[in-house]
């Protein structure tokens, strides 16, 4: 059985992103397209997402004009391509608190948000440090923190402490502390709902940007190569990669990095009228293809 339909939804992209920012050590080796995506999980009477993208109203102009981010479209237009409305989304798993992953909270008025408690508490701790430690605040938008306050007041914030199984049937949250950020998490979907699943997927947030992070440059001689940015340690990033790959039975392509453009070469996909890609990983019974 296939319990959930799974889609990777592109909402913006950087056409020419330096490879050195994605794969440790790839200095002066050119650029590649860096798509910005979130994940939609639909089935069992629920619609869930992994991350929600950034708030264009607050950041769009700077990101477009200064950093080359192109083609941003709001969740309502992006999700429409698979027949989903933002208000229908019930559960959202935030892999980490960077503004391009949790900035669009306001667009999902009925969703409950899950985030590692350590991700929030360590950011708060970081804010108490003196100015010379400001690098540790990278990627954090104070406006997002204010939105989190609102979520908590509305009882729509769930602070997770470590791993949590079956947050929805067959969906598990896994802590990856002191890696890309203080309290990153990755999401496992056991798409047959079995305890020892043979149909698992991992949504890794920024714990891997590309498949090179998970299998190196030579597929016949794989190795883990760290991502370009870790607030925690690259050792922890590598050991988390091992955990993620093991949890999908060693099939690296079932670990889904949302910034990986080559998902299109592995799974059915199409380009929408807005020039954004929809990639279809799995279809639950009764769900029609959105890329056919």
């Amino acid at each position: 059985m296939t319990a959930y339909s799974l889609w990777v939804m592109e909402y913006a992209a950087v056409p020419n992103y330096p490879q050195s920012g994605l794969i440790y050590g790839m200095h002066n080796q050119g650029t590649r397209k860096l798509p910005y995506c979130y994940i939609v999980i639909k089935g069992q009477g629920q619609i869930a997402m992994v991350d929600v993208g950034y708030n264009h109203k607050a950041h769009g102009e700077v990101l477009a004009n200064t950093y080359g981010v192109r083609g941003w479209h709001p969740p309502r237009e992006v999700l429409e391509e698979i027949g989903v409305k933002p208000e229908d989304v019930s559960n959202i798993f935030i892999t980490h608190a960077h503004f391009d992953h949790m900035g669009n909270i306001e667009d999902f008025p009925n969703a409950t948000f899950y985030i590692e408690e350590r991700e929030l508490s360590k950011w708060v701790w970081t804010m108490s440090l003196e100015r010379r430690f400001r690098w540790l605040m990278l990627g954090i938008d104070p406006a997002d923190i204010l939105r989190v306050v609102d979520l908590a007041r509305q009882k729509r914030l769930v602070c997770v402490d470590g791993d949590r199984e079956n947050v929805l049937p067959g969906i598990d949250l896994h802590a990856a502390f002191d890696t890309h950020t203080w309290g990153s998490m990755y999401v496992t979907v056991r798409n047959d709902l079995a305890v020892n699943s043979e149909n698992s997927w991992v949504f890794c947030g920024d714990l891997a940007y590309t498949y090179e992070n998970l299998r190196g440059h030579q597929p016949n001689d794989p190795e883990y190569i760290p991502i370009g940015l870790a607030t925690g340690s690259q050792f922890n990033v590598i050991m988390t990669a091992e955990k993620m790959v093991n949890s999908v039975g060693g099939d690296v392509h079932r670990v889904i990095p949302p910034h990986e453009e080559r998902l299109k070469d592995l799974f059915p996909s199409r380009i929408t009228k807005n020039g954004l890609r929809v990639t279809e990983l799995a279809l639950a019974a009764g769900e029609k293809s959105r890329v056919g």
Partner: peptide, 22 residues
């Protein structure tokens, strides 16, 4: 005046080769 330190984080590498990814 930046709301977020983009250059040290998200998309910084797109402007400053060798900086960090999101």
């Amino acid at each position: 005046f930046e709301k977020v330190a983009y250059a040290r984080a998200c998309c910084g590498a797109a402007r400053f080769p060798g900086a960090h990814a999101p």
